[in-house]
């Protein structure tokens, strides 16, 4: 295990971005993700990259928009209130079909809330916090290793589909240090003939979301986007089913809350209670089919979130019998407790 290093989630993410070929980072400080910009400020100059602290989250996401339009692999990171500010830019990025990676290390909300880890931005992430008919790919790491691995994947997915890939972590994942094996670059290269590089020997390129004339042109764009989103839904659903084959009860969670659920599953299994965990790795596209399969024979489904109930709506939409779906959540930076999960599962009885 000599290739393992102890690394903080936020820093693992930064290093993974560099491994993935990201050479441009624009951001604005906000706790609990400050180690990401600090890491990029330290490391990017070493690899010939550019780090720029923007004057605001709005400016940062628009710098990302510009750098992406120029054809670069680019990233920004923030935490919940800052991600709210970026929504305008994310909508434009979707409309202009630009690839980028955005990191949300979620904290408690609404408003200024607090700085502890939370999962209160699931709706904002999966429903689109900006205006218009658009989607973004949402990856939900649960460990430092996954923070790094999914970051490398994120850049490839962003370029492949020309979409925003949102890495949805939380304050605990940002701050935790764990063993990490650094990921390897995938080596995938994506042509970007649409990029703005100067119209030398070609017709001018235009990067824009505006579609005024003819009247139907915006719908045409939206239908193109829709086809792309359908393709993403068909090909990019990711999840993990842990001890679900014989499970009478199923826990559904993602990120930090899924770690707590896994602990509860292990402890309940030791007591002979057949419980499994279904863990999202993509929140959009939501892995509905895999969940349906894992949930099919279970008696009860307990959705566990660090919010007062957001992902549960996707769970209810996915399973055959939504009456089976129960909820346990803590919010405002509090963590669900293993003992409470165990108590509830036991209370379901037979």
């Amino acid at each position: 295990m000599s290739d393992q290093i102890l690394m903080k989630g936020n820093e693992a993410l930064g290093e993974a971005a560099i491994i993935a070929g990201c050479r441009f980072y624009f951001g604005y400080p906000i706790t609990p993700q400050n180690e990401v910009p600090a890491y990029m400020a330290r490391r990017l100059p070493d690899v010939g990259g550019t780090f720029l602290q923007a004057e605001s989250e709005i400016a940062a996401i628009n710098m990302v928009y510009g750098a992406s339009a120029a054809g670069a692999r680019v990233m920004t990171s923030s935490s919940s209130p800052g991600i709210s500010l970026k929504q305008e830019g994310l909508s434009y990025i979707a409309g202009a079909e630009l690839p980028c990676v955005v990191v949300n290390i979620m904290r408690g909300g609404p408003g200024l809330g607090n700085i502890a880890g939370s999962q209160g931005d699931y709706f904002q992430s999966t429903r689109g916090g900006g205006n218009g008919d658009y989607r973004q790919l949402v990856l939900t790491p649960a460990t430092v290793q996954e923070m790094a691995d999914l970051t490398v994947l994120a850049f490839d997915l962003a370029d492949k589909y020309r979409v925003t890939v949102l890495i949805l972590g939380d304050g605990y994942l940002g701050q935790i240090s764990e063993a990490l094996t650094l990921p390897k670059p995938t080596g995938k290269v994506f042509d970007k003939p649409w990029a703005l590089t100067g119209a030398k020997g070609r017709k001018p390129n235009k990067v824009a979301s505006l579609r005024l004339v003819p009247e139907s042109s915006l719908e045409e764009l939206n239908l193109v986007l829709d086809e792309k989103y359908k393709s993403i839904s068909a090909n990019e659903c990711r999840s993990e089913s842990y001890l679900t084959d014989d499970a009478d009860y199923l826990l559904v969670a993602y990120g930090t809350s899924s770690r707590i659920c896994r602990e509860a599953v292990n402890e309940l299994r030791e007591e002979g209670i057949k419980v499994g965990l279904f863990r999202l790795i993509t929140a959009w596209p939501f892995p509905a089919e895999a969940l349906r399969k894992a949930a099919d024979k279970t008696k009860k489904i307990l959705t566990v979130e660090m919010s007062l109930g957001q992902m549960i709506e996707d769970v209810q939409l996915s399973v055959k019998d939504s009456d089976k779906v129960d909820f346990y959540g803590r919010s405002g930076g509090m963590l669900p407790e293993t003992d409470e999960i165990k108590r509830r599962i036991k209370a379901y009885g037979n």
Binding site: I58, N62, G66, A199, P204, K206, V207, A208
Partner: peptide, 14 residues
């Protein structure tokens, strides 16, 4: 020549 849209007020950032 090449052109890029910016959202309202964000042209300097883009």
């Amino acid at each position: 020549f090449d052109g890029c849209e910016a959202s309202h007020g964000r042209a300097p950032a883009v």
